[in-house]
Write a protein that binds this DNA or RNA. Structure first.
Length: 548
RNA sequence: GCGCCCGUAGCUCAAUCGGAUAGAGCAACAGCCUUCUAAGCUGUAGGUUACUGGUUCGAUUCCAGUCGGGCGUACCA
């Protein structure tokens, strides 16, 4: 419909000699301003040196619109041109939804393109905690959104099982193991204190007895720790329906020489220099960087920046059309340094889209929940799922835009009542299912003899038309949401859909054996609504319960 | 100090590219169940969009400054 109007408007514009402007539409907030609104007259006012309303009138006079599509055109306010789209056009959305079913809302403007989404990427030193939750849920929804617009998406997890933190894990496990044998054995000050470490130690003791006593076999304890921890992480992801296609191990960048190569390239292009025994990346103050950054420590170990650069270069070389990274604002500055290095090495970093989400504050009622990595009182993601369920976790984490601080009220999320926004949507879906069950029961063999295309013509009450309009908007909402990487827009949309549906339900009897054709037309509307809820939930990664 | 993000109703948050009277939910108040799920619906009240300037037909949105909050400012990741 937008394309149709755009076409007609540009014809009209060329008639009045102003065809060089991009035509855009708004959906007015208020129904009395029509279904679509164009502001071109105001934009042209300056150029043509004419009052906007006069220009709008000239444009409308030159418009030739099909009355079957557009029932009314009017000029309002400062010079808005408002279009009223015919109800018939909206009614067609019902058979379309029913035909496309699970594909309604999918588009193809990114078909043939490859996207890579990397997220979570926690190192295997412990289970995921609630701090990982927001990125986890955002990534899941965004990867789905990208797929809905046609991308072939590779879901990737980047991790490092080398380095100090893993040595720390090995030592922590060993200490717990020794404590089984000698309760007074000293635990390292910086060690991982989580209960899972004791569990790993107990498993080892169960299998090996005290045969490992006294000799710290680092590699063995490390690999046992890693195996166990990664299983914990994967199990949690599995509970949330998150599946990665690629687990990219940082150490592969060392073994295949990529790191060495990157260092050589940096030196060759004079982007890095040695000082105080360390290798420094030269940063340009004019591009907003304060000081140079160390990429190889004087100990010879690289800082995270070097492998991160190498990793992103690797992703670029793999030929993705879009590369998305998601992380928290505590990493907000570091990615810029990494991308800076990638760019200076001559790679096109413009394909890389970084999504930064702000931190999450958890609270129970009015009390905030403090979480510290160094204490054993870490609130794990698993516990959160246990407490409030996977759907609510997913929903609460993506309910708000990523760059606003999220206030996560665990008490509210736990509540199985009307206070909880998750249930508002799921209830609406369950209600459509209930109605359809009822229809089957009471209308069992009474099929309508009327054709589907004639049945939908009976949908003419304001509540019905309103619902039709909302249903028809779903595909463009998906595109908007995907293009801006903002899944919360889908939630806002579904809220509107639920609202329209509940109102329709409340004011109209749907299953009515006395009014067979009307019943069947409304059942079609119900089915279409149910389908759109389901598709929206699929994108978000939330279940669509049939009963509640 | 500097950099990034944020500041919208009592609370949690929306608001498409700068659009018309800034919207939802919760909390408050008043109504609606002998009929398909009341986890719902209808209505009332609630705002100087932190503040001050600027840009323009028009600013919650863009720019500058002030105040307030979060994160970062490592030879940690």
């Amino acid at each position: 419909m937008k394309n149709y109007l755009r076409q007609k408007l540009s014809e009209a514009l060329s008639n009045i000699g102003a065809d060089k402007i991009e035509i855009q539409f708004d959906i007015p907030k208020d129904e009395k301003f029509g279904d679509l609104s164009a502001n071109i007259a105001m934009l042209l006012a300056k150029e043509l040196k004419l009052p906007p309303r006069k220009i709008a009138q000239d444009i409308v006079d030159n418009l030739k619109l099909d009355p079957a599509k557009v029932s009314k055109t009017e000029i309002a306010g400062a010079g808005f041109i408002n279009f009223f789209i015919s109800d018939d056009h909206y009614r067609k959305v019902v058979p379309e939804i029913l035909k496309l079913a699970d594909d309604y809302g999918k588009s193809s403007h990114n078909t043939g393109k490859n996207a890579n989404l990397e997220w979570i990427s926690a190192n295997p030193t412990g289970p995921l905690h609630t701090g990982h939750g927001r990125a986890a849920c955002l990534g899941k929804a965004i990867s789905n959104l990208l797929e809905w617009t046609g991308y072939n998406v590779t879901r990737e997890y980047y991790y490092n099982d080398a380095g100090n933190q893993m040595n720390n894990l090995a030592l922590s496990v060993y200490s717990r193991y020794m404590q089984i044998i000698e309760p007074d054995y000293e635990f390292p000050e910086e060690g991982y204190v989580g209960g899972y470490v004791k569990e790993i130690a107990a498993n080892i003791y169960h299998e090996k007895g005290d045969s490992l006593k006294g000799k710290f076999d680092k590699d063995y304890f490390k690999s046992e720790g890693e195996k166990f921890t990664f299983e914990l992480i994967k199990a949690t992801l599995d509970r949330m329906g998150i599946k990665h296609d690629v687990f990219f191990n940082e150490s592969s960048l060392y073994s295949d020489g990529t790191i060495e190569k990157t260092i050589d390239d940096l030196k060759e292009k004079s982007l890095a220099y040695e000082q105080d025994g360390a290798l420094w990346l030269k940063m340009n103050p004019e591009e907003g960087f304060q000081k140079d950054k160390v990429i190889v420590k004087s100990s010879g170990e690289p800082t995270y920046r070097l492998p991160d650069m190498a990793y992103h270069i690797d992703k670029i070389k793999r030929g993705f059309d879009l590369i998305v990274d998601i992380f928290g604002s505590d990493h907000g500055d570091t990615y810029k340094e990494v991308l800076y290095g990638v760019k200076k090495l001559g790679f096109d970093e413009s394909k890389i889209k970084v999504i930064i989400h702000q931190m999450v504050t958890f609270r129970v009622g009015n009390e905030s929940v403090k979480m510290s990595k160094r204490s054993d009182k870490v609130y794990s993601l698993d516990e959160l799922i246990d407490d409030i369920g996977s759907d609510a976790v997913q929903f609460f984490f993506i309910m708000r835009g990523a760059n606003t601080h999220l206030d996560f009220d665990i008490e509210l999320a736990k509540e199985r009542s009307d206070k909880n926004p998750v249930y508002y949507l799921q209830y609406a879906h369950a209600r459509t299912c209930g109605i359809l069950r009822n229809a089957e029961e009471h209308l069992n063999d009474i099929a309508s003899s009327t054709d589907e295309n004639d049945l939908i013509k009976l949908l003419e009450k304001p509540d019905e038309v309103r619902l039709l309009k909302v249903l028809g908007r779903f595909p463009e909402e998906v595109v908007n949401s995907a293009d801006s990487f903002e899944p919360h827009k889908i939630i806002n949309y579904l809220n509107e859909l639920a609202e329209s549906f509940h109102r329709f339900y409340h004011n109209n009897r749907i299953v009515d054996a006395e009014n067979l054709d009307l019943s069947h037309s409304r059942i079609l509307l119900c089915k279409a609504t149910k389908q759109v809820f389901k598709n929206g939930f699929d994108i978000l990664g939330v279940s669509a319960p049939e009963r509640m």
